[in-house]
Design a protein around this nucleic acid. Sequence first.
DNA 1: TTGTAGGCGTTATCAC
DNA 2: GTGATAACGCCTACAA
Lengths: 325, 325
Amino acid sequence: MTTIRDVAKLADVSVATVSRVINDKGYVNKDTKNRVEAAIQALDYRPNDVARSLFKGKSKMIALFVPDIKNPFFPELARAVEDISNQYGYTFILCNTDNNNKKEITYLQALSQKSIDGIILVSSTMSSTQMKGIKVPMIALDRKMESDLISVTVNNREGARQAVQYLKQTGCQRIAHIAGPETVSSAIHRLGGYVDEVKNDAWFTSHYIRAGDYSMDKAFEETKQLLEIEPDVDGIFVANDVMGVGVLKAIKALNKRVPKDISVISFDGIELGTISTPSLTTMAQPIYHIGKRAAEILIQKIEHPKTKVQSEEHEVTLTIRESTR
Amino acid sequence: MTTIRDVAKLADVSVATVSRVINDKGYVNKDTKNRVEAAIQALDYRPNDVARSLFKGKSKMIALFVPDIKNPFFPELARAVEDISNQYGYTFILCNTDNNNKKEITYLQALSQKSIDGIILVSSTMSSTQMKGIKVPMIALDRKMESDLISVTVNNREGARQAVQYLKQTGCQRIAHIAGPETVSSAIHRLGGYVDEVKNDAWFTSHYIRAGDYSMDKAFEETKQLLEIEPDVDGIFVANDVMGVGVLKAIKALNKRVPKDISVISFDGIELGTISTPSLTTMAQPIYHIGKRAAEILIQKIEHPKTKVQSEEHEVTLTIRESTR
DNA sequence: TTGTAGGCGTTATCAC
DNA sequence: GTGATAACGCCTACAA
């Protein structure tokens, strides 16, 4: 490996001067600068980032924690974060946490030891006490956290309300909800929005709410049970698209038709929803955009620690497809 | 940040001794060892990985290059690589290359500067000359490369043959192929397998082959054109599942039925294929497994550079679902 | 405008 | 068994 010393020798200057040229800092004579640049070219010299990191205590790396990249909601988020990281010269680290707090803590420590510059968290299992010791800049994405961490999310409650309203508007009379995990803020707010809209309806009882976990299989099971107990359901608001597909499958398995017998609307707007038959009407999040914003805000926090940054809540948009009337 | 020096001071020993304890290397008295460990505990000391990296010239990081993590084939691969990295104490870096050679080269340089320990490449655009200078261990995954890089792949050609055979076996008489990009080895071999099986059939002409690019939209268009020109097609072998979905959509758009009028079989075995209606019969790759093997072999190469490692070709398995008779 | 030298936190060599 | 100390490659006071 060629070092700054080699360059200095070849250009017949000191390492300090080379450093100045590289970083474009301090005074350096035009001619010497040219000599140094020529030497850099000649040797194909590239500064060693590890040495830089050691000196600066910063690594130009940021990490994204997601439950599981196999869940089709996360690749687009990851893509956005990677794009922005890249754009600002950061290296992108991906961590699958499986919603496992132990894993999160382990990652956190490992990454601190590597002088990670910042972390974007899609998490619901990390408490404020656990984050006390950590001083690396962080931001929550998609889900708010117990701690008072800045977050980038969407208006889940309002979006859920709109979804239920749309179902009513298209003629649904008995609307059920397949909810997400009760530990996840997005799921809690979507449930809240649903309840807002139906709590005063005469037909409503808590039987219309089934607890899912954002997975297709669970949604499939819950829907089958739901329709057994409440066969008069003619509309279902599902807390995410992945579960929406499970719901579709369950309805089909029971020989009912969507949207003729039952309308289905879900949440997220991932591409998967265009592939099912029927395709899923959904409240679409600006997924790439929130990932992008989270990365931008994090980098802002990293590079200008004094500037105050704020949480953001973005809007979802009703995307009508085939699963509703 | 607490350093090895702090620990040494507290335990009243030299940094050398602390280092010995941390790394469990060289002789150290039982008692002093206890003292040091106590100090480590007391200070909650963790060694700085950056300093370690600088000294060793290794970073305990490995990277995966994929075209685009949003393509549903890659998350499972990424998950496998991350799991194994993690298991061996490596940090996982994800790079989206967009099949763009410039981006690949840029990543390569950036990562070298960070003393990356190894790279797993899903790539077709990197030539052997470009890799000449680079001395970081690499391995190709899913696709073979122009260079003589060790690779972990599946038996694409044989798998393709089996797919076509199965179509014939279920009664198809005119079998078309929607191929993948002609620059990608997996696509080339799948096409090769198809040709092996049909080249001697009386009906066969090159019109039965359409060039796709592994994307849904292109497959949709190509299929529509195909069926216009060759309306007698009653079976289609599609080079991957994502295109398989596009094919399904095109057939539906033309008011033909799958599998009644046309049977469809594809390749990959991603979960997407279970969601479409009808679900896709496919030649399933052991996706997680090949990702795992690539990571294991790479780490082997990193940690024991002298051991000879070999390319691996894994088997695909026919997975019968609804899109074939 | 340029150079010297100390330090970032570890590890490993070589004395003691 | 243990302790100085010289790297690893870079950056930045401080001098000159």
